[in-house]
Design a binder for these strands. Structure first.
Length: 595
RNA sequence: GCCCCGUUAGCUCAGUCGGAUAGAGCGCUGGAUUCCUAAUCCAGAGGCCUCAGGUUCAAAUCCUGAACGGGGCACCA
């Protein structure tokens, strides 16, 4: 926070010089940086170097003038010029220890941004996996990312809604329903063929069994036929003819015709089951979206008004941004920023997934958010230009929509990659992963890498209970502090914060200063990770803090006899404990008091 | 062919809107426990920041090109 004050003061200093009137402050890319090297003070700025170019004056001269004009600041001890043109700021010794009073006061709110002028209303949509099967490892990364980012954005003062978009419409769901039907038939007649293009997962069988069970209960005596007996032969013949994926469409319409409302009922049943299990998996991981938006909603017309999908179609048509070709309806997305035009209504009259997405995103815009964030798998990156094109076409600001692409995750076990093909049901589900390691570790390890990086999730490491495992390392630091505080109680000594606050100057060891410095950086780290959508920064920060604490712990005895020193140290430990807690809470991970 | 992401120590990865001597963990070598949790700590070795140009007072960082790896280019979702 001192940094922003330094920047302001520097600008004031510039303005106070007549010969520098022309300088455009807004265009200056001034930075105030933390110094790694102690000899250069606490902060440094490059302002003199930047101005040197514009003013055609030496950095030294500029720096000298700036230093002279720099208004006094209670936390700044001295300001110095240093080659080749930096200005270094040295803070007074007590500056960093003051942070302990602030932490003490703000407690779990420390690190949260309180500036209200930049608060935004944000919608963040993530996971949104098709409800055609359980979540797998790839979805887990998106889930952890979206959830933690939401926490962080909230911590920075924004109002955040978390949403899951359920694709409960369209062909994939029909294939899913068909798959369940065919499994039912197969369970009742072993010789019934099952196409390889249908869903293969074990969960399909389980749904089929449930359906058969419930049909039995309803009175039909044991033997249940879903397809009318006279049609079964025909169906088996059709099944034998299936050569490619598209051939399934024949079966779907066959099933729809002959099963009538049973098809819809089974579809609804299966969807409900799958969505339920998705919600369950997510909540196990601590992911709880507060909004669930179904694609079906886009197709329903209400109060005699056209459906959302018809509405956007209509707008595009009236704007003459569509045309017919080959029996399909195309949107002229290439007029905006897309490589080619895209189909919104297929030859068979069905609208495409893209059409749904236009309507869906238009609806998001209509809900009054300042920022709309989507978390997508990196394999969808080519999809973004067409969605943005559509938003532009509808007269909406495409920049309001921001998409974060998450790279793929691979699992490592015993130093070997585990292959994860979704085909053939040979994939590892998120639930299995959480059973193998813990839900907490799952969350942490997914966040512990920036989104653009491919992630190797090392199962053995995530289970390890040693410093190799960064999560345990951090949690252990927290537990250690709790243990010390407990020991203090056992010796019948009491915490006296007032005395501690008066003796903060005793925290002058090298390790203590380092800890104080790290603690005071926490608010910046939260802000930065929020501004740049980089939750991983919190993980790295907490590792740093924990490492510094463990070093301190090994070097110095905390529970010393001298009361003043003891109380100051306790205050420091409480600060570290609080910040670890606040950080882990942002990550959605617990802070155990004993391990 | 076009587009997105990556490439930093033996391995896994950080690296501030370009800034002063490039960082951590693992692994390796050597050490630390009569004492608050050794589930820990300390020290050492280990670098052409993939390559080649360019911009700049200053490049791991920005621009151009190349190589390698992952992903994407549907009337699928």
């Amino acid at each position: 926070m001192v940094k922003s004050e330094i920047k302001k003061s520097l600008f004031k200093a510039i303005q106070s010089k007549k010969e520098w009137e022309e300088v455009n402050l807004a265009s200056l890319r001034v930075e105030i940086k933390d110094n790694k090297e102690k000899n250069f003070g606490d902060f440094s700025t490059n302002i003199a170097l930047i101005l040197a170019q514009k003013l055609k004056e030496s950095p030294k001269k500029i720096a000298d003038k700036l230093i002279k004009k720099f208004p006094p600041h209670p936390s700044i001890k001295k300001i110095e010029f240093s080659k080749p043109g930096f200005i270094n700021f040295y803070l007074i010794d007590s500056h960093y220890s003051e942070i302990l009073k602030i932490i003490k006061k703000e407690k779990e709110k420390f690190g949260l941004n309180k500036t209200k002028d930049e608060n935004k209303k944000i919608l963040i949509e993530y996971v949104s996996s098709n409800p055609t099967g359980p979540l797998h490892v790839g979805h887990g990364r998106g889930a952890a990312f979206g959830s933690v980012l939401s926490n962080i954005l909230r911590a920075s003062g924004h109002k955040v809604d978390e949403e899951y978009y359920v694709n409960d419409q369209g062909r994939q769901i029909d294939i899913l329903t068909l798959s369940v039907f065919l499994r039912c038939e197969q369970l009742l007649n072993n010789d019934f063929p099952y196409p390889k293009f249908c869903y293969q997962g074990e969960y399909i069988n389980s749904y089929a069994e449930q359906i058969i069970e419930s049909s039995k209960e309803k009175g039909s005596k044991g033997e249940v036929f879903f397809i009318p007996v006279d049609k079964r032969k025909r169906l088996i013949e059709e099944l034998k003819k299936i050569k490619k994926e598209e051939d399934l469409d024949v079966l779907i319409s066959f099933a729809r015709r002959n099963l009538e409302n049973k098809f819809i009922k089974v579809k609804e049943f299966v969807l409900e089951q799958i969505v339920h299990s998705i919600k369950l998996d997510l909540s196990k991981m601590g992911v709880n979206q507060n909004l669930w938006f179904t694609e079906t909603k886009l197709y329903k017309s209400q109060n005699k008004k056209p459906s959302l999908i018809d509405e956007v179609k209509d707008i595009l048509e009236r704007a003459k941004l569509t045309y017919e070709e080959g029996g399909a309806l195309w949107f002229k997305s290439s007029q905006f920023k897309d490589d080619k035009d895209r189909v919104i209504e297929k030859e068979n009259g069905q609208t495409t997934y893209f059409a749904s997405d236009i309507a869906y995103h238009a609806h998001k815009y209509g809900r009054g958010y300042d920022k709309i964030i989507n978390v997508w798998g990196s394999d969808h990156h080519g999809y973004l230009p067409r969605v943005k094109s559509a938003m532009s076409a509808l007269g909406l600001d495409p920049d309001k929509l921001e998409v974060i692409f998450i790279q793929f995750a691979t699992l490592i076990k015993e130093n070997k990659k585990i292959s994860m093909s979704t085909r053939g049901g040979q994939f590892i589900t998120l639930d299995e992963l959480m059973k193998e390691v813990s839900p907490e570790a799952t969350r942490f390890f997914f966040i512990n890498r920036k989104a653009e990086q491919h992630l190797s999730f090392d199962l053995d490491l995530a289970k390890k209970q040693s410093k190799d495992n960064p999560l345990y390392y951090i949690q252990y630091a927290h537990a250690r502090i709790c243990s010390i505080l407990k020991n203090l109680e056992l010796t019948k000594r009491k915490v006296n914060s007032g005395l501690g606050e008066k003796n903060l100057n005793l925290l002058n060891g090298e390790k203590e200063e380092e800890l104080l410095k790290i603690l005071s950086k926490f608010p910046e780290v939260v802000l930065k990770s929020s501004d740049n959508y980089e939750p991983h920064l919190i993980c790295y920060y907490l590792k740093d803090l924990s490492s510094s604490f463990h070093g301190y712990y090994n070097e110095e005895k905390i529970l010393v006899d001298k009361e003043e020193e003891l109380q100051a140290k306790i205050l420091l430990l409480q600060g570290v404990k609080q910040v670890i807690f606040n950080g882990l809470t942002l990550l959605g991970v617990s802070s155990p008091s004993s391990m």
